[in-house]
Amino acid sequence: MSRGPVRPYVITGGRSLAGRDALEFESLLRTVPGVAVDPMVVNREQLAVLEMCRELLSVAEVAAHLGLPISVLKVLVDDLWELGAIQVLPPARPAERAPLALIEEVLVGLRQLR
């Protein structure tokens, strides 16, 4: 990032980072193809997110590549999500408890790797 460090609440427009449970570290992101975003309503970091997510990456990966804390990235993505600029694939684990079928799918996948 070309500009100097700024405190996280500046990047996020002063909004609270709390209470945003919809996005998880492992939520997957993809910029909506062909989306046109008004540059007046998004900031530089959000443009970088849209550029990076032209293909599928997790919240954690985008944060690491952009050098932002995950908590900050979640707020940026939340806005883009609201704007309809980014697609969010929620974690594969839907419930309080992981369903047996999902664990078995993980196991089958791991065993096929070697």
């Binding site: 492992e26 997957l28 293909e55 599928l56 990456l57 990966e61 985008v62 694939l89 992981a98």
Partner: peptide, 22 residues
């Protein structure tokens, strides 16, 4: 501080529908 990675991200296949974590 960790600097932002300059390498091209390793994207997931576009067919992936979700992720789990351990």
């Amino acid at each position: 501080m960790v600097s932002a990675s300059s390498a091209e991200p390793a994207y997931l296949p576009s067919s992936v529908q979700g992720a789990v974590k351990i």
